[in-house]
Amino acid sequence: MSEQDPKLLLQPAPLLQQGMTTPQAMKDVWIALAPATLFGIWHFGISSLLVIIATIVGAVVTEWAFTPAAKRQIVLSDWSGALTGLLLALTLPPGLPLWMAFLGGAVSTGLGKVMWGGLGNNLFNPALVGRAFLLATFPIAMTTWHGAPDGFFTIHASNLAMPLMQSATDAISQATPLGLMKFEQSATATGSLLLGTTTGSLGETSALLLLLGGIFLILRRDIDWRIPVAIFVTAALFSMIINSVDAMKYPAPLFTLFSGGMMLGALFMAPDPVTSPLTPKGAIIFGVGVGLLVVLIRVWGGLPEGMMYAILLMNAATPLIDRVTQPRVFGRAKSNGGAK
């Protein structure tokens, strides 16, 4: 894995990612996610808070269990384990049974992070590994979307399903904006997409608040601005082109940008410094790839949402992008043996 090669750190500036492994950077991400998370809890009720807690507990417990006792203090103190849990929770439906949320948190950390050797060594974004696992494992529960509940303190019956058991069948599933687009070709108004008063994963609905958080991270130089910008530009352009071919069938650029997991993925998951390219050129290639894949999967794929797979696929390409776009290191042999 070329990211962990110490020699890579010798490359010339800009190195925006340098501060990211510190607890301070993690704290920034927590702050940036706070508005969207709080909005999600307010909008979807206490259920969503329970889901968030379950995933965080799952993630932290797994990290604790698989970390040697001597290192626990250091590993757990940087809040990154809990952050994985939170990011995963934000991509889950608020009515998900809590045992599944817990399992998702455990898988995120176990298969997504610990197995690779801990934070910094993983090839894929841990939260998305957890989500991919859950989506493949419990396809029905993961695509049963609850709208806003009657009252803030209403807990969905499906949340409280016994471990290993199905959720109660009271769920009145509502289609997400992406689902409506895909299966009924009806677009949701951009206004409600921006505010987040739609159905969807519990932390992805409010495009505006996520965008605010993302701008905060960019200003704090915690993430590389090129990645989200490249994703947005590519996805918007692509969707503009196909939208001009058939406006009824294909989504408009604004819809593409503000619906589903686009904001959350582009601002908080794709730019994860561990799993995205280090070089500026690589960052742009990465972003363009994600942007293209999202629209491709959303429009022609079997599923309404494609953000998760787009990012995971480009994660897999990251070592390659890093190698190709690596600047020449002067004073070394010309062969790429240096990168190996």
Binding site: P97, F138, L164, M165
Partner: peptide, 20 residues
């Protein structure tokens, strides 16, 4: 083993489940 309400882990039947 678990009665009617068991929630199947679909991924386990699919190829990725084998690898995992």
């Amino acid at each position: 083993l678990f009665g009617d309400n068991f929630e199947p882990w679909v991924i386990m039947i699919l190829p990725p489940g084998g690898f995992i």
